[in-house]
Structure formats: C-alpha cells, structure tokens
Design a protein around this nucleic acid. Sequence first.
RNA 1: GCGCCCGUAGCUCAGCUGGAUAGAGCGAACGCCUCCGAAGCGUUAGGUCGUGAGUUCGAAUCUCGCCGGGCGCACCA
Length: 694
Amino acid sequence: MYLELQQRLTARLKTVLVDLYKLQPSDVDPAVFAVEQPPELAFGEYALPAALKLARALRKSPKMIAEEIAAALTPMEGFASFEVAGAGYINAKLDRAHLAKLLAAGAEREQPKRDRVLVEHTSINPNKAAHIGHLRNAILGDTFVLLLRAAGHSVAVQNYIDNTGVQVADVVVGFEHLEKKSKADVQALIAGSGGGSRKSFDYLCWDIYARVSQWYSEGTLEEQAAKKQLRLDTLHLLEHGGNATSELAELISTAVLRRHLETMARLGIEYDFLPRESEILHLKFWESAFEKLKATGVLYLETEGKNKNCWVMRRMGAEMNEGLDEDAKVIVRSNGTVTYVGKDIAYHMWKFGLLGRDFGYKIFHTYPTHTCWISCEHGEKEHPHFGGVEAIYNVIDSRQSDPQSNVIQALRGMGHTAEADRYTHFSYEMVALTPRYAEELGYTVSDEDKKKAYIEVSGRKGFGVKADDLMDLMIAAARGETLKRHTDWSEAEVDKTSEQIAYGALRYFMLRFTRNSVIAFDQKDALAIEGETGPYVQYALVRAKNIFRKAGVTPEEALAGLAENAELAKPTVLAESAEKAELAKPTVLAESAEKAELAKTLGGDEGADIWALLVRASKRSFVLEQSLVSSEPAYLAKHAFQMAQEFSNFYHKHHILNEENETRKKLLLATAAIALRELVKTLELLGIEAPEMM
RNA sequence: GCGCCCGUAGCUCAGCUGGAUAGAGCGAACGCCUCCGAAGCGUUAGGUCGUGAGUUCGAAUCUCGCCGGGCGCACCA
C-alpha cells in the first residue's frame, strides 16, 4: 500500500511540476521526482527533495519553490498535508484513517505479468551429502524465487547437476579401488540405506570422498602420480560415457541427487528441472557454441606462447605484451578438449535460447503440486519448455565470480548484449564455522585457527556440518522448548511445531545477512530463539493469533469491522496503473464521525505506536520491490523482524480485550489483524511457516 | 604482481545511487507478570564509521593513497 501511494504521489508531483513550471518530465533529472523517507515518522511518511533539486534551474530559493509545490499538491486523496521543512524538503503526511481503512480492506494491486526468468540454485556436486554451505545457496535461491513469483514473474527453478566432474570421479575411485565394490554391491548399498539417517547413502559417500582425498596424498611420489592418473582416467570415462565406470557413476550420482532433493524438500525447496552435464556433453552443446564463438571472433586460435594451439578468449582489460595476450582465458585446450568455462558458455546460450539445441527431458520426481524433470539424451515427446528465458539468476558462491564474468563476456562478445545485461551472478559468501563450534563438533582446531573469527568448511576433508544433521539438531532443540511449554500436546502437535520452528530458524538465519557477508555459523546462534530470529517473528504472530482465539472474533471479521463503508478502500481504486493521470487528480473524501475519531486516535501521541505499526505493515510490497532490484532477500527478512518487534511493542502496550471504547477496540483488533496478515505474508515470502501455537 | 570483496558499539551485522540527531540483535546493568502466554516489553551504558588526503554547502556513503583481513587470477571443475 505504501508503494502504491508513493507511486500516486510521484505521478501527481509530475503533473504539478508540469503545470507550475512547464517542465517536460523527460528533460528533467529523475532525481527531481524522487520520493524519500523522512528520518522520523513524526515528519511524515514521504519526503520530496524536488525543490532542492530545482532551485538552481529555476533561480529561486528552494523554500519558495517548496511552498508553491506544496500548495499545488493540496488536496490529494489519501494525504492529509504537505509541509515544507528544513532547507526545502516537502514532507507528505498520510491521511491516517484513510490508510488504516485501506489496509483493513487489504486492497492489493494486481501484479502485472512480468518476464519469464530462470533461477539456478543448489547445484551441489552429486558425490556426497549436502552441507551447511549448500543450505545457504538453496535457501537464498528458493527465497528469491518466491519473491520473483510474488512480483508477477514466471519462474523456472533449475538445479545444475555436474554428474561427470572430478568430484563424482573421486567417489567412483573410492568405490572401485578403495572399497572394491561392484555395481551390484553399490546398488545393494543404495537399496539398503534409509533416507535421512546416518546410514544414508550420501553420508557414506561423504566419508568415502574424504578418504579418497586423503588417499591421493599418501604413498611415494610414484604412487601418488599413479593415483592422479587413475583419477584422470576415471574422469575421462565419466565424460565419455557408455562404459561400466560411467554406469557406476550414474548410479552413485543419481542416488546422491535423490538424497539432495529429500534434504531440500524438508525446507520446502523444490525444482522444476535438473540439467546434467552428461547431456551437455553428449548432446554436443559445445559444438554448436564453438561454431558461434569462432564465427563472431570471440575465440581465436593462439599460435604463440604458453597457450599455443589453444582456442582462447581475451579477458576484460587484458594487456597485450608484444602482440601476445598470455592472460587470455583458455577455452579449448591444445588437445582439443573443452574447459569448464566453455561448457558453461554453451549452457548459458541454451538458457537464453541462443544455442539452437535442446535437452531431452524425462520426469525425475513428482512433488504434490508439480513435476521435476531431468535432462536425458532421448526423452519424452511431451515436456515443458525450459530455457529461452528473458533473464537469469545464478545463485553461485562469490569465488566463482571470475568464471561467471567470463561467460557474460562471451555472450557480450557474440553481440548478445541484452542477454549479458540480464545475466545476474547472484553471488554470496560462504558459510563458515566459528572455532568454538568446530570444536563442539569434535574437530581439532589448531591454535592459529582458534584466533580466527571463522573456519572455512571443507567437503574434501570431511570437515563441516551436514545439512540433515544440522536440521535434526535444531529440531531437537526446538522440541525441548516446545515440550517444556506444552505438556498436554500430542506427539504430532509437538513434532509439527518443532519442525516449523527449526526450519523457520534456519531459513531466517541464512537470510538475515546480506549476501556478501560471511556467515560464521555457531550452534548457539542458530538455535537461539530470541533476538533477530525466525522464531521471534513466529512468536509475535502466534501472540496475535491468541488474541483472536480469546476474543472469539476472527481476524477477517476484525478487518471487515474497520473497512466497512469504506468505498475508497475498494481494490479497483488501485488496480490501474498509478502512472495514469486521472489517479493523480485531487478528490475529496466523504467525512464521517467515525473517521474523525479514528483520525484523532491515530494522530495523538497515544496512537503513535499504532500508526508506526500500520505504516510498517503497509510497506511489504515496497520492501519486496527493494529486495528484487537489489537481489537482496535480507531486506525482507529485516522487514519481518521489524514488523514483529513493533507488534510485540503494541501487544504489550494495549490490552485489546479489556478496551472499553468500542471504536478504539475496533481499531486495535483490526490493527492486530493487519499485523498478523502481514507477518504471515512476509514469512511466506521467506519460505517460513506460521505455527498455530508455540 | 593483477583483480574483486570487506574493515561501523565488547561481539555479530544493517545503513553506502551523498543530505535532516549513525541504527539493530546479542552481551552488560536495572526495571516490568492479581491484566490477550514474560520464547516477551521497557530504561541505561557503549561509536575519532580502519587511516590519511581530496571532491562538495554537506561524506559512514563518491575519488585516490596507505594499513589490516578474505577470495580469485590453471591447457581443475
């Protein structure tokens, strides 16, 4: 609602400036039409710096201009006043009763249909159990998908599966050469391992992967070289396909992938399509891309220096040394094989529909509401259309920003500048462990590491926390708290609530930090259910629900009580584009005794906290927009927390059920209902559930 | 060596397209349950915004240098 009113204010400001100063909006610095937020709510809800920006051009004092504009803006539907403040800011104050009624009516603008976009996230190597760092990736990606969808985008979620890489090869080496397991043995292991327990196949692979990594570095130099060669040979067998080793790899990677989907499903994270590297290789994606890269001159054959006989791509800002660019990125090796970046260029051309080839598709998994497809060479005739989207977001950790920018540069070099501009590397920093927590987990921490703020986890060393273990630990802790408070609950109730709290706590913790901040994970912080956490937000909402349970009134009834006879609050008022001029025309509202009383309550000092809560509640779509343009879900997480905090304050201060003044009680109940609705919807955007009780 | 990111309260972090007294959580001290659940609420203490210069009427925010920390820079993926 806040966003809609702001857009109307902008539209009206434009017409006023055209009328007053004959300005052509297209010729003017957009900053003139900026709408900011005053530092304090007491100053108003919006601040217009227009007069400050126009002073020089109009050769008048900012204050005079501000007075003129303020006078011309008045009156305006939804706004109570426009006041000149400071050097020439115009502070706009909302009509408080009006906003309260709008919020109670819950009028939301219909989202216009926006672009088709593709979000790639999770993309865990299918060779071992998911760990804590993967959780950050998947939670960030999944939440961003929720935000995009809420804003009207049609989103396909992809989880890229590198099933032919060295990491899978390492585990295959482990099974074949360390464990001496046959394909049938591995099949039996997979069949015998239950999901979610320590006996799971992905856990087994976790240990084998760590052992193989250790094994590579043992023995004489000759032995080590032989092991390296074994690793390389295995990798080539996987890439080539059609042999016993690649079949074993397929078996292993698919089983681990299924476990990853189970792990993520616990948090409500689902996928639409799983493109695999094996198909990118076998369906000759690279060959198509190579032709186009050569034709556009992005790649050239190096004839001199260390990269002789390689096809290379010039890096951004690379310097030539005597006509030779030795810093160029090798895309095709001198032996004719393609590097990782090369394959990635082909894959991303496919994403934008620029490749001229497609995957085969078959169904891999069925979720309650949709199916998840996986790539294959010869798939179903009927399948959804993936790829060919307008914008993409790749949730990939910040260490990969170089290869990511190489891909973008290749697209740009081929002339696909529009695509390059809409390619977002949604980068994020790693999740590490605090030294203290690493010790708690039983790892030996060196004295040097103890001084650090955090220690990086390493799948190679088997050092870290597995995602499923972490969730189990958090559920157990939440369960302890729940049991303390509700001795009379059934087992099912305790289970459900504990899971809602634990998963909410985890998702919130991964989202509350901005993307480029390293998260130093500590069990104590993660399990904390006080402070800026998911459970705090959930608790606020549960308190709101309790009010209605006791009052014998539903939130819907409370909202209707305030919204009634509010013609102006009808959704249609806001359904059309706010840019349209007719919306900016001043209209006068019908006055009523009830509205006057509302205005009095909300306007006084006593009502300041109620007003602050209502304004906060009105900002969901505004914060959603901010989160989207900056690709930063943390803003919405912060919004949820602030809502919860202001509601807790309100809850403490006003004893709604004892309120004797009927109009006041109606307002308080409606405010609680608005806060409840907004808390639930904001948490929904973050993928966090709202418990009934806790 | 080159590139990217970071340095804000004891700790963990917001704020960074320049603008109205620098914010939050944790931790610390104190206070609040005959009243919708105290997993809560309130009050207080705590900051030369790494450092030096520059641009500007105005800099935590922009530019440059320096110091400290992290990560990239393979014919690995």
